[in-house]
Write a protein that binds this DNA or RNA. Structure first.
Lengths: 357, 357
DNA sequence: CTGAAAGCGCTTACAG
DNA sequence: CTGAAAGCGCTTACAG
């Protein structure tokens, strides 16, 4: 063993940890292995170009000194950070939580890290293209909830692989991982039509203009029409917010007007559905006997609530993993074009919409 | 207006976006403003050292060219990234979700970004000190769930501000934001003792060795003793996992043995509590009339479930914000010592433990 | 297979 | 108040 020099600074000294004056650099490794820094760099990046013996010596030096390449220096020349950004409307809630887990798992497997940013900091217009963070990441996965051309343009001008998650791809060079929400919404609507007459089936979504809500509504309407329902009448379609509170308030008012008994509701998401079920129970209505409800997203809540909540399952975790895949693939092969993937959704029937006996 | 040179490459050309051959650098700005790069750097970093007129010219050039400093180059010399790492046992679930939101909000306000990493990728020993990500962040907030000296040591050797969230600070240079879990657990236990005899009060926690579970159990036992209960007998204390499934299974077995009627349970967290309530209902027991249950964490679930779930509120969002604060403060003032903050917990009494009439 | 050297884009004493 | 120059720690043609 040669005497360790720089490493000493990093280890214990009389039992106390001392702050190293300077971290171990590639020069230290080169010195210790008696090679040039170019060779050290090569054993790290293109080991096939180095003689086996030399490589071994260098590896030993690296291990002895506990050397780790400075990522800023590396990034400065390679223009890569191995960090993928993920920009979401919010970091809170089942849906985003599941998304992040899926992304993290897969990114880790591929040797990437995740920089998260909520883009709900005041400027909702721009799906996360603000701020210095963009200069630190190799690619971006984001969610677009409103149709906004300026937002899309901003994404398109980012000089990195971008994937939009959840909604269909804008054209251009942007990838997308979306869900066949229409299929799920249609399946749910058909399920409700099984035992509830078409004029008593309602859609209660988010606000008009929300891409998810709009897609789900389209399928709802198409399914009703296919059932040769003349409508749907405007009294069967409602817009609000994707929250428990709004769902509760909406249902409360409808209940006060006696309009929910015998009805069946396809909610724009699980939160709204939960609010509706709550309000119905508070008013003494039985779900599903007096009112049937289906949510959307199949969040963890659905199985925990009583009655358990029927919902359209959206494979968010898988989508997040695919998003990471897509980005890494384009990073590895710049020639590769954008992906456009659509994942299947499916209805999970539970107690809240079970057909009455 | 001087002719824009480098910026041309970044803007539209015949309506199509062209990839710039080379991004705008500090040299381009210097040229355009007819100053040296040192001056450009100064207007960005120490504007007070630059003459007003000069600064204006430089600012104009920056705006015209759309210049943004290369963060790798900057990081290479400043050794700062303005990125804070956050390493969690999992990214999924109410608790971590709330934590991340709190951290993100505050980090954003302070001009920092968040690099998240789950440390549950196989190697549980080490609370997130692995991998290259450590070289990219200015500070780390992490959660320690098991008492592990090697894990703590690894954190201590990180050359950056570290804050441990949720559990008490190990000594040394590490900050901590913890919760007065004992107070909350004691309050909950006292609440249960109000109408349930001491020998019928149980603690159902996570596995032995989990720091949170152990702390809560200690307070439970102390409170029972203070109520001059000889025990608690070993039949009143149970260890398992922090999941709905485990809670359900545990309760199911207890119910089968007829041991839960008339009892009151302090669960180690909300998940366990949910499982217990579920199992009780499945067996036809009324909560709270036949069985009283209190959870821990006061996650969003508590208010959505029926009966609503009593729980000990843990101010996780605030804790996350304080954690970011602590890190940024130490970054701004290297002389500053570690913080050791304890936040208050409090019992939210809801239907699941309401005293029988 | 290996090394000397240029270059990535910044910041910051040091002179003036 | 401003500039020339050194230096941060890497990678990668280019020669040999």
């Amino acid at each position: 063993m040669l005497p360790v020099t720089r490493a000493d600074a990093n280890t214990r000294d009389n039992g106390r940890v001392t702050r190293p004056a300077r971290p171990v650099s590639i020069n230290d490794v080169a010195d210790r292995a008696s090679v040039s820094i170019a060779t050290v760099s090569r054993v790290l990046n293109t080991p096939s170009k180095v003689a086996a013996g030399t490589a071994q010596r260098v590896q030993a030096a690296i291990a002895d000194l506990g050397y780790r390449p400075n990522l800023f220096a590396k990034g400065l020349v390679t223009k890569r950070s191995r960090v993928i950004g993920i920009s979401l409307p919010d970091l809170h809630g089942d849906f985003y939580s599941a998304l992040m887990r899926g992304a993290d798992e897969h990114a880790y497997d591929l040797g990437y890290h995740l920089l998260v940013m909520s883009n709900a900091h005041g400027d909702r217009v721009n799906p996360g293209t603000n701020g210095f963070a963009m200069d630190l990441i190799d690619g971006l996965v984001t969610i677009v909830t409103e149709s906004s051309q300026t937002g899309i343009d901003a994404l398109a001008e980012l000089q990195m692989p971008v994937v939009v998650l959840g909604t269909d791809a804008p054209d251009g060079d942007i990838s997308s991982i979306s869900f066949d929400q229409e299929a799920g919404a249609a399946e749910a609507t058909a399920h409700l039509l099984d035992t509830t007459p078409p004029e008593r089936v309602m859609f209660v979504g988010g606000h008009r203009g929300n891409l998810d809500s709009d897609a789900r509504l389209r399928a709802f309407m198409a399914t009703l029409r296919a059932a040769s329902h003349p409508g749907p009448l405007s009294e069967q379609i409602f817009h609000g917010e994707f929250t428990v509170e709004w769902g509760w308030n909406w249902a409360e008012q409808m209940l006060a007007e006696g309009r929910l008994r015998g009805a069946a509701v396809l909610a724009g998401n699980d939160e709204i559905a939960v609010g509706i079920v709550d309000a119905a129970r508070d008013r003494g209505l039985s779900v599903p006997d007096d009112l049937r409800v289906v949510g959307f997203d199949d969040s963890r809540l659905c199985q925990l609530l009583r009655p358990t909540l029927s919902s359209v399952r959206v494979p968010i975790r898988e989508a997040a993993a695919r998003a990471i895949d897509t980005i890494v693939s384009r990073l590895d092969d710049p020639e590769r074009g954008p992906d456009r993937i659509t994942l299947t959704t499916s209805l999970a029937v539970r107690d809240s919409s079970r057909a009455g006996v």
